[in-house]
Amino acid sequence: MEDAFAMVVGVLFALSVYLLLSGSIMRLVLGIFVLSNATHLLIFVAGRLTLEEPPLIPDMMKVAEPGFANPLPQALILTAIVISFSLFAFLLVLAYRAYQTLGTVDTDEMRYAEPEQSLTSLRGRDV
């Protein structure tokens, strides 16, 4: 089962890299979202997969024996999901604001912060 999960994680990473290479902000944002979800799955797999086992340690034992579900990855993923989701929401608002303010979603055309330095600017923008 770990192999199958690892492959899903790999496919998601590949997909997110493809999206991140795009010049459109919307695809960038989606790429980051896919990347963070792939990361969550990765933590899940890294924390050992178990089937139908409770994350409980019997009364007498101090350390869980193999076979017990590991609750820590889920706690980590929960934290990471909350963070990545809120940042995703922020990025969406930022992307929309960028579209409104700058009039483009193409990162190649966003040259307000870093104007081209030649005196005869190719785009002729007065920045």
């Binding site: 902000i25 940042l87 922020f90 990025l91 930022l94 992307a95 604001r97 960028a98 303010t101 700058l102 990162t107 966003m110 040259r111 307000y112 912060a113």
Partner: peptide, 8 residues
């Protein structure tokens, strides 16, 4: 906004 997009 431009800088923030790249920074973020």
């Amino acid at each position: 906004i431009d800088g923030a997009v790249k920074y973020a």
